[in-house]
Design a protein around this nucleic acid. Structure first.
Lengths: 134, 134
DNA sequence: CTAAGTGTACTAACGCATTTAATACACATC
DNA sequence: GATGTGTATTAAATGCGTTAGTACACTTAG
């Protein structure tokens, strides 16, 4: 079940886009998997169908999903979807890092922050469980 | 001169707060330095005085600056200002990294992104000061 | 064919944050 | 006293996000 923060400054449709992208990267949504219908998803999330549609529109524009009138919306089979979603995440990280650099923070301070999130073990393992898919 | 993006999703007063914090961390604004008056700053930036005041209010609430009625607004002499601003930047980086981690990105991928911003030289120099002028 | 479910499009209205505008007041400085 | 400060208040306008309701074309199951 997807949890939304209706109080967040981030619009609902942006949160939804992020969540779907996250599920794709986690492998819980695979190419050609069908997404919930606009109306069902909206009912399930307690929001308006138009809001779901807006998220789907953006995702289709970014070629993360594709939609067929009368059938439904599906995860894009495009091989580069994962690559694209990865790149999106990387870009967000880079933006924050650039801002920090502009504020004179040192590389080591940033690296420390990354270690704070991922743990400080010296191994170069990513630490997650889907590593074997390489 | 401070440049604002009036089209950004980030409110003007938030941009202004960021810019001032940035100038403090760059050492261009030092403790007890006087900031432009609300009215002058607004005229200079081409925005409404209320917007500047809102930024100043937030900065004073966060103890980044202090204001004296009849005199002006000044950078707080609090020794921890720099530390606090650093922490803000670090938190933004961590948020982006946590989001990326939730999407299954590996630690190495994040580290690579950091290197993309800071450069890949193996030295542990922080890169601040006049380093970039070489 | 019919019915139900799908994506899509459109208009209208509302809420809310942001921003602007215009005053007003108290204080400090000269 | 004049000027320049910060501060407070009210009002209006604007834009974005969201909801609501309706409508149409399409696909599928029966």
């Amino acid at each position: 079940m997807i949890r939304l923060d209706l109080q967040s400054r981030l619009p609902i449709y942006e949160q939804l886009k992020n969540k779907i992208g996250e599920l794709v990267l986690l492998g819980e949504l695979k190419p050609d998997d069908q997404l919930p219908s606009v109306r069902n998803f909206a009912r399930e999330l307690g929001i308006n169908p138009n809001t779901v549609q807006k998220a789907y529109q953006d995702l289709e524009r970014d070629k993360i999903i594709y939609s067929v009138a009368g059938r439904g919306s599906y995860i894009s089979p495009d091989i580069d979807v994962t690559k694209q979603l990865h790149e999106q995440q990387i870009q967000k990280v880079k933006s924050a890092v650039m801002q920090a650099k502009a504020c004179n923070l040192s590389k080591d301070q940033i690296i420390d922050a990354v270690y704070d999130v991922y743990g400080r073990d010296t191994s170069h393992d990513s630490g997650n469980g889907t590593y074997e898919k390489i």
